[in-house]
């Protein structure tokens, strides 16, 4: 995790996640404008966004990969 190449990779993951979140936010905004009923689609986009944050920003996998990540 402390190697420079790891840093680049993690930064890239951060940017890709952020862009995906931004795109999904715009998508859900347009869903609310043009699709009726919008509720099922909005729930799906919100769940995907939540999963992206939990997986890539909060690193939930650390909980079950303790040997690799723990110091």
């Amino acid at each position: 995790m402390n190697k420079p190449s790891d840093k680049k990779a993690r930064m890239r993951i951060g940017w890709v996640t952020f862009i995906a979140l931004g795109v999904l936010t715009i998508v859900e905004f347009f869903i609310s404008l043009y699709i009726r009923p919008s509720t099922p689609y909005l729930i799906v986009t919100a769940v995907i966004k939540g999963w992206l944050i939990i997986s890539y920003f909060m690193h939930i996998a650390q909980v079950w990969r303790r040997d690799k990540d723990s110091k």
């Binding site: 936010t25 859900e28 905004f29 869903i31 609310s32 009726r36 009923p37 919008s38 509720t39 909005l42 729930i43 986009t45 919100a46 966004k49 939540g50 944050i53 939990i54 920003f57 909060m58």
Partner: peptide, 19 residues
């Protein structure tokens, strides 16, 4: 802080977008 963000991810459509 990310948790606070996740909460808003669900609150935003629930308050602003649902119809």
């Amino acid at each position: 802080w990310h948790f606070v963000d996740i909460v808003w991810v669900f609150f935003y459509p629930a308050l602003y977008l649902l119809s």
